[in-house]
Structures are given as C-alpha cells and as structure tokens.
Design a protein around this nucleic acid. Sequence first.
DNA 1: GGCTACCTCGTACAGTGTTCGAGAGCCAAG
DNA 2: CTTGGCTCTCGAACACTGTACGAGGTAGCC
Lengths: 270, 270
Amino acid sequence: MPDTESRSPRVSFPWLTERPADARTHLTRDQIVEAAIRLADTEGLEALSMRRLGQVLDAGATSLYWHVRNKDELLDLVVDRIIGEVRDEMRSTGSWRADLEETARSIRRVLVRHRHIAPVIGSRPTFGPHAVAALEWLIGRLRSAGTDVRTALLASQSVINYAAGFAVFECRDPLGIDSSEDDRRAFMEQLGRFVGTLPADQYPNTLETLEVGASITPDEQFEYGLRQVLNGIEADVTNVRTRGRGGRAAPAPTRRPHRRGPQTGPALRR
Amino acid sequence: MPDTESRSPRVSFPWLTERPADARTHLTRDQIVEAAIRLADTEGLEALSMRRLGQVLDAGATSLYWHVRNKDELLDLVVDRIIGEVRDEMRSTGSWRADLEETARSIRRVLVRHRHIAPVIGSRPTFGPHAVAALEWLIGRLRSAGTDVRTALLASQSVINYAAGFAVFECRDPLGIDSSEDDRRAFMEQLGRFVGTLPADQYPNTLETLEVGASITPDEQFEYGLRQVLNGIEADVTNVRTRGRGGRAAPAPTRRPHRRGPQTGPALRR
DNA sequence: GGCTACCTCGTACAGTGTTCGAGAGCCAAG
DNA sequence: CTTGGCTCTCGAACACTGTACGAGGTAGCC
C-alpha cells in the first residue's frame, strides 16, 4: 500500500470499535494514539511508520493491528484527538463573536503545534467525537445569540474552514522551523534568481509584492481574513435577529456548478 | 522513503532546471507531468507511483529521474501546472470584486476537478511560475481599483486561502464520487449509531445540525463564506480609496502569539 | 570512425503497510 | 490441577514503494 493520502476510500468509524482494555494489557489504543502524535511531532510525519511506532512503544509493529484496524484508522484517531485539544480550549465568554474568534485562533494554534500532522487533516475527513462536540458547542454559542440552526451551521463551517485551511497552508511553509539557515538562504537565492527571469513589463507588481509580503506576518494575515469572515457573519446574525429569520443570505448561485461535485451524500459535510 | 507528505524539507526550484529537450528524446518533462495528472485523476493518488507512471509512458521507472529530481519535485510541478489551469481561466471584467469571486470559484472548480491531487497542495508549498503569475494578476486587478500593494496582497491571500482551503476539505469528503452506494449507506448507518450514543442533554443541537447540514449544498456553503470574505475586502478597499492610504486594517494582535510559528523567513508566504 | 554528451533503464537496497498464523498468558470451568 | 478458550503479542513473509548506481545505447559533431 502506497501513499498516506486517500489510501482507503472505505469509511470507517473507529470510535465505535474501541477495545475494552481489560486486565493487564500492555498496549491501549490511547497510548498508541498518543505515541503516534508525539512521534510525528518530534520526528516528522515520515517517521510515523507502524514499525517505528511499535518500537517507541516497546512492542512489535504488528501488535498495533490488534488495537487499530490499519494506519488510516490510526490517523483518524490522531486527528480527532488533536481536534480534542481545540475543544479543551473552548471557553464561553459573554460574546459569541469573541468565542468564534478564539476558536479560530485555537484551531490555528493547535494545528501549528502539530504541524507535521496538519497535512493529514487535509486528506482525511473528520467525524470523530471531539469534532462533533466542538461543532455542537459552536452551534450552541451562535444559537444563544438568536441565530437559527442553518445560519449557525453556515457560519461555524466558514470559521472552521477558514482557520483550518489557513493553518494547513501555513504549516506547509518551506521556510518552516525545521529548515536550516542554509536552506533558507538557498531558497531565497533561487527565488530571487527565478523572479529575475520574469519579464518586468508583464510582472509589474511581483517584485514589490515580494518585498511587501516579507513584511506581513502570518499573524497579521490570519487576523485580517478572520476579521472579514466574522464581519460578514455578524451582519448575518444581527440581520436574522432583528428581521426575524429569513437570513438565508441569498440563494445559492447554481450557475456554473462544477461538474462531478464530490459530495452527493446527505451528511454533515466539512 | 515513506510518506508522500513532507518527505523532503529541502526546498527545490525545479522550474530553473528544465532540460533543454533536444532532438530525439522520448520523454519530456511536460509529458511526464501531464501523464502524472491524468494518472492521479483517473486512478487516484495511490496509483501515482514512479513505476506505474513509467509504465503508462512506455518507459522505465527510473528513466523519469533524468527529467525530474525526485517524486516531490514532480509533485511540485504537478501542483503548479494545476494552478496554471486556474490562471488560464482568469479574465478581467470591469469589476475587481467579480474578478476575485470568479478566481475563487475557479480555484475550487480546478481543485475539485483534480480532487485526488488536492491534498498534495496541502502538503507542499507552491511557488511555481503559474502561482506567481496568478498572484501578479490578482494584485494588478486590486491595484487598478486604487488599492495599495499591502492591502492587495492581504486581500488576495485571503481569497486564495479561503477558496483553496475550502476545496481541499471538500475533496476529502468520505461520501465522494468514488464511494459506492454501499459505502454511503454503511457510513450513514454508522454515523447514526454513533450519534445515538451521545447523551442528548449534552448534545441538544447535534441532531438538528445533522439534518440541516444535509440540506446545505457545498455550493451554498462556499458562496456564503466567499461573500463574507469579499464584503470585508470591499470595505477595506473602498476605505483605502476614499480615505487615501492608511488601510492597514488595524495592527496585528500580537497577543497570544502561538509559539514556534513556522515561517520566520522573509518570503512571499502562502 | 571515434568522441562526447545526453538519455534510458535493469538491478538492488532499504523501507513501507498489512496478512497470517503460531504462540504466550490469563481466566474460568470441569 | 488440568483443560479449554479467549485475549493479546509478534515473527515471518508478501507485494509494494522511492531512488542510487552504473552499464549501455544513441544521436550529433569533428
């Protein structure tokens, strides 16, 4: 079996198959998941192999298969546990807007903390108990502000989407923490050489964009987009509250429906 | 060598090392990249192995290594070529807002078209010529509306981020096009059973959320968030235009700076 | 013809996820 | 105490993977 991504189209629900963890068992699912996260965090995703994982657990590689159906299922458990960290940080303040903002920051913070695992979240769906609980909380916060469920769901998904998408892309940065100074210098040198080959008349903005881009911190970029998203949501929410419902926010465009849209199923999508 | 993701932290610039493609060469880099995309589209990312790719090209697996340094570099080329498809769809209308909207839709459309490759974009940075050209165009469109480069870059990144993040998550859907009817039924059955195990008093919204979620199309969800982002940007842009510059859109928050932020380098980040 | 540079590719190596079945350890029943 | 039976561990094996190496072919030029 090859790539880590999209290996098994089969959907599994590992959270319904937990082993009872009787008596004196050396390995538990929790230990495995925890060790997997630690391993990926410290040595990178490529180090997270079943053999290596068994090694750090003082167990044979194939012993893990008693507790976990396969590696994909393990990754699902890993992802949900990480979402659990976001959930643990959720605190209700008085303001629903502040709560959504903090949730977005929390998502980003947690994903960056586990940056080697972040790309996994971009390749496997997330329906674990922690994800469900987190969504429940978000919906509840918005409903308490008088929003109907539909708007609450649209808004929550938008915030989650924005924060997670930003963080996944952020973690992918080639000049990340584990790149050496030489790497960074080499990259900048090559990037400069590449931009130098571009015809200046067709690229009037690129050089300046590069310079300006260097002065924009990820924090600033993140907060900028987050503010836009929440401004829009706030308009929607207050709209619904004042004008009663009907905040369906304009009908879906329908024009130019991309062919073969992936999800046809009737499920909580994300 | 293990996983597809984050395999080589080393940054490479394949676009500076193109082979001249002299005379009678059976293989060209373009052919390889094109075949790789077609292979991943038709048979999934897991089928995209060097051996299999060589096979569909009537070439030995290791022949590819003359044209491409390694598989990661190939994936970078694949990603940039796909971004090129977005670029090809870029058309200037009179309205910068419409242009940004259509760009966002185009990003989503193209990524969904190549849905098996979408997760790759979440694991490898994108600095290819097409990405640069696309950004150049976006910045140009915003500058033509009187925006300063800084705001234009913040806005462009936000739109790109939103659309690409949404699409990557969308492509990951477990009920995607390549899941059978049995898969879908089995999944829904398991999801229902799982939700049934939740204590109803602690999850007052989840059941309703699930039902409502089934009625929200991806199109509607996408357009909802896109509208929020562009509303915010429009406020910023007109703000800059009317009040002159100074549209720095509030200082970065700085509070709660997540430790070990990935990018410390001074480069066009995304 | 010879030379050289470009290009192809068979072989080999280390590593991967996963299946299978043998076996260890414990617990309860006979 | 012995005898099953169940839970759990794990060594061996299989079919893969990416890719380093080096032999060999081939085209263009002198």
